[in-house]
Computed example of a mutant assay.
Amino acid sequence: MTSMTRWTVALLMVLMVLALPVVASAQKMTTLRVGDQIGSELDYGPYWIAVEKGYFKEEGITTVRKTYPNGPATLLDYNKGELDAVMAGLGPFLQAASQGSDYVIVSSITKGNAPLVARPEIKAAKDLNGKRVGTPGLGTIHDTMLTLYEREHGIKVEHVSAKITDLVAMLEKGEVQGVLCWETVAATTVRAVKGAHYLAPLPVIPGAESLEVIISRKIAQGQPEVALGFTRALLKGMRYIDKHEDAALAIIAKAMNVPDAIEVARLAKTQVKVTDPYMEPKSSQIIYQALLETKKITTERVKSYDDFTQRFVDYSFLKKAEESLKGWEPKK
C-alpha cells in the first residue's frame, strides 16, 4: 500500500468517526405532533420562541404543528390518536376529561386572553343586554368567559358560535354586536372594523387562567425524557419573552405571517400573559364550576376540581425543568 493510499484510508476513517455523532443525534430526534388554533400565535408565544431559537431541537424534539378552528376540534383529533400534544383552553380540557379523554397537563401557557370587542354603539356592558355576541364555539373557554361576563354585569346575551375566522366580518356587518375571542383575532378586529373597541380587554376574573399544554399520558409515562424536554423548551420560551419582549414579538409576528403582524401583536400583548407556567387556581375553580352549572361537564368522571388536578395535572416535569434551568439566561 502506497503512502498516498494509506493517507486516503486514514482520512476516510477519521471522517467516518466524525460523522458518527451526527448520525446518532439524528436517530435520537423525537417527532411530536402538536395541535393549536388558528390566529393564536401570540397566545402560544413560548412555543414559537422555542421553535425559532432551537430549544426543541436542543431537547432532541421535532414538532409538527397542526391548526384547528378551536380547542374542542383540536381535542377530537387528539382523542383519535392523531396528536401527541395540544395547546388549548381549560374549558375544552375539562370537558374532554369529563367525556373520558386522558392526558397530562404539563404547564399553563396563557392567562387573560378573553377580550370582549364591541361595535361603536356599544359603550357599556348594559348596552349588550339582549344583543348577540360571537364566540369561537360553545365548548371553548371564551364561551365560558362570556357566561361569567353576563353574570358579573347582570345581563343576558345570545351566544353566537362561529368560526374564529368569521368573527371579524360578522361584527363589521352588524350580525353580532360584540365578539369575545382570543388574541390576536381580537386585536385584528379592533384594527379592521371601524369604531370597534375593547369593551372589556381582560376577563372579569383577575389573572384568569386561559390556556394550557397537554401531552399524552403514554408519552409522559413511557418517554418521560421527551415530556421533560418538551416542557423545558416551553419554559425557555417563556423566559425569553420575559427577558426580550421586543425580540420575542418580532419572532411571533413572523409566525403570524400577516402584513401588519407586528402592529397587531403589540396591540394584543397587554391582553395576554404568557410567562407563568402554573395554572391560576381561583379562576380555574370558577371555570370548572361554571361548566358544571351550565351542564357542559358532569361529576360522573371528574368528581371535583381537586379530582381533576390530582389526576390530570402533573407539574413534576415543570419542576425538574425549573431545577435544571437555574442560572440559565436566554440569549437574544
Rank of each mutant, 00 (worst) to 15 (best):
R6C: 02
W7S: 08
T8P: 12
A10T: 07
A10D: 05
V14S: 11
L20Y: 12
V34L: 11
V34C: 01
D36W: 09
E41F: 03
P46E: 02
W48T: 02
V51I: 06
V51A: 07
E52H: 09
Y55I: 06
Y55D: 11
K57N: 14
K57H: 12
T62K: 13
Y68M: 03
A73Q: 00
A73W: 01
L75G: 00
N79L: 14
A88P: 05
P92M: 08
F93C: 04
A96V: 00
S101M: 15
D102G: 05
S107P: 03
I109M: 06
L116D: 03
G134T: 05
I141H: 08
D143A: 15
R151F: 02
I155Q: 03
E158I: 08
H159Y: 05
H159C: 00
H159M: 06
K163V: 14
L167G: 09
M170V: 01
G174Q: 10
T189K: 02
V190R: 05
R191Q: 15
V193H: 03
K194I: 04
L199V: 00
L202N: 10
L202K: 10
K218C: 00
Q221T: 03
T231N: 07
R232S: 01
I241P: 07
A247I: 11
A248S: 01
A248N: 00
L249D: 08
A250P: 04
I262F: 14
I262Q: 13
E263W: 07
A268Q: 00
T270E: 00
K273L: 08
P277I: 02
E280F: 07
Y288N: 12
L291G: 06
L291K: 06
K295H: 14
I297C: 13
T298A: 11
E300S: 11
K303S: 11
S304L: 07
Y305M: 10
R311N: 11
F312S: 11
F312M: 05
D314S: 12
Y315H: 08
S324M: 02
P330Q: 06
